[in-house]
Design a protein around this nucleic acid. Structure first.
Length: 288
DNA sequence: CACCCGTGGGT
DNA sequence: TACCCAAGGGT
């Protein structure tokens, strides 16, 4: 097993980006909100929204006191608006189960709505300094290349945690840096396409490089086409509900010119089923 | 486990 | 232009 930790720590010290959630004293709530926003949304789009969010809701309890509709509106165009709903639910759960304090325990975090394997460990490690393996898509790619000699990682699995654990230093502070450094390397150097191996701190011990950069193929499933999809229809409906001062919109005024009326109705029904919309009196609105 | 869920920038 | 990709999670 090559020592990745030592070069990763040295590299991270010099090259880590200055991101808001890495500032000392940023707080567990801020870290948690950032992790929700970063679930499938790029860093650069998250930063302004994160700052506005925390200014409006500096604590979980503050968010819990407002309506889910406010969270969905504030989420704006970050995408996957269920995350806004789930973040609101998590805030309510934190208020009710944890006296308004973001828990530091992985199992307690996992029990919160919208928090899975990655986010629970990210909060425990980056907000509280615990020692756990944190594995996101960047880390999986770095480990697949450096350890397994593959160009892309396979599907996510529990083995990913064991792989990360295998390169994690025993000492707590160092382990936190290695977790962050693996993610950072994957995000900025060991990127999916055209990686910058010439500046990579672990190039001299990378199994993929040593093997001559074989293309092992990408067994991830391709993203479904967005144009013409149900997701696009849902997005259009939610954009209307979020929009302007309209708190409730007559059903007949919700994307009336959508090309596929069946798809439009399906989108509305699924949004209601997800709790992202409510129908009453022939009107549609965000959840109160 | 496969599939679903938004949105926008890069190539 | 199309396609790729993004600090995932729930069902």
């Amino acid at each position: 097993m090559p020592d990745l930790a030592t070069p990763l720590i040295a590299w991270y010290r010099e090259n880590a980006r200055d991101l808001p959630w890495r500032r000392p004293g940023f707080g567990a709530w801020g870290v948690l909100v950032s992790e929700f926003m970063l679930q499938q949304t790029p860093v650069n789009r998250v930063i302004p929204h994160l700052e506005a969010w925390l200014e409006r809701w500096p604590t979980p309890t503050a968010l819990a006191m407002d309506a889910p509709a406010d969270a969905v509106r504030q989420w704006a165009n970050l995408g996957y608006p269920r995350r806004a709903l789930w973040l609101h639910r998590a805030a309510v759960e934190i208020r009710d189960r944890h006296r308004g304090v973001v828990p530091d325990d992985v199992d307690a975090l996992l029990a919160l709505t919208g928090i899975g394997d990655y986010t629970a460990r990210a909060v425990a490690v980056f907000a509280y300094g615990s020692r756990h393996p944190v594995v996101d898509t960047n880390t999986r790619r770095v480990l697949a290349r450096a350890l397994d000699g593959r160009s892309q990682p396979g599907p996510p699995s529990k083995r990913d945690l064991a792989a990360m654990e295998s390169i994690l230093p025993a000492e707590v502070a160092a382990s936190t840096i290695v977790n962050a450094a693996a993610m950072e390397l994957g995000a900025t150097v060991c990127v999916a396409r055209s990686p910058h191996c010439e500046i990579c701190p672990v190039a001299d011990r990378c199994a993929w490089r040593a093997a001559g950069y074989p293309d092992t193929g990408d067994d991830r499933r391709k993203q479904a086409k967005y144009e013409g999809s149900d997701r696009q229809a849902r997005g259009a409906v939610l954009k209307v509900l979020r929009g302007a001062a309209a708190h409730a919109v007559p059903l007949d005024d919700v994307i009336p010119d959508w090309p596929d009326a069946l798809q439009r109705d399906r989108a509305i029904d699924s949004l209601i089923a997800d709790g992202l919309a409510e129908a009453s009196g022939g009107e549609l609105r965000l959840p109160r």
